[in-house]
């Protein structure tokens, strides 16, 4: 489970002064659920996910991931999390097998467990054909499959996806969406950030709309439709972030 309580992150910029990238954010994401974090570029999605993955420390507030506090036990949090983003690239000079093995080893898996896990992931994700080839020669699809294997190698309870389909072709993006759904069916806690409405409609159980670092709307799609008297998620989003009022003004 992921639980964020009044999570706040303030950056200090010499030119722009104080920037509240995440502002008093509270939400819960439960096992077997996909929580969709929906927001425009710069809304604070990536910062929120980096706070949950312990890459950043909150200025105030707190978060627990798989029962561990992100500030007090960052290494245990990371051991429970699989993080996949367009910004999490792979080592070009390693093969797919070496990449998966490296991350498995850092997660404390034994050699026997690693061999078994690599074989299983290679079967599930159809990696056999390029398992021993260097990543730098891979197509985008091959890289994405290897990234998924890297994310899953330690069988994490929590999965964090930060706009994982950005820049991908339709087929590769579909594979990612299928994989995210698989995670939910396996009882994982999944948080998925995106600004693509159709992806949220397809896979998310709960939607959190984030705008200027604040959670401005939250709930299942049906509840949001009822609250905003709108069927179209794009319209709901526009109204939730107050862009309709800005347009009118």
């Amino acid at each position: 489970m992921i639980q964020a309580r009044n999570l706040t992150k303030v950056f200090h910029d010499k030119k722009r002064g104080e920037i509240r990238a995440v502002d008093d954010l509270s939400f819960i994401c439960r096992p077997g659920q996909i929580y969709g974090l929906l927001g425009a570029n710069g809304a604070g999605k990536t910062t929120t996910l980096r706070l949950l993955a312990t890459l950043l420390r909150p200025t105030s507030g707190s978060a627990t991931v798989a029962g561990f506090d992100t500030v007090a036990e960052p290494e245990r949090v990371r051991a429970s999390v699989g993080f996949l983003a367009t910004s999490t690239a792979l080592y070009g000079r390693l093969t797919a097998r070496e990449t998966i093995t490296y991350f498995a080893r850092l997660n404390g898996l034994s050699d026997a467990a690693i061999a078994e896990r690599v074989a299983r992931l290679a079967d599930e994700l159809e990696l056999h054909e390029f398992l021993d080839r260097r990543v730098e020669k891979f197509s985008t699809g091959m890289k994405q499959k290897t990234s998924i294997a890297r994310t899953l190698v330690h069988d994490p309870a929590v999965l964090i996806f930060d706009e994982p389909t950005v820049g991908l072709d339709v087929m590769t993006a579909r594979n990612i969406i299928r994989f995210v759904r698989d995670c939910r069916s396996r009882g994982k806690t999944v948080i998925y950030s995106t600004h693509v409405m159709s992806e949220v409609e397809k896979i998310c159980d709960t939607i959190g709309v984030i705008h200027q670092g604040r959670l401005v709307a939250e709930g299942p799609l049906a509840a949001l439709q009822e609250r905003y008297h709108e069927q179209d998620l794009e319209e709901i989003f526009i109204r939730a972030v107050g862009a309709d009022k800005e347009d009118a003004a």
């Binding site: 999490t88 070009g92 850092l106 404390g108």
Partner: peptide, 14 residues
Amino acid sequence: ERGTMETILCSPVA
């Protein structure tokens, strides 16, 4: 530059 720093920082290695 290659984007692998964030990947390794996500792992549990201290």
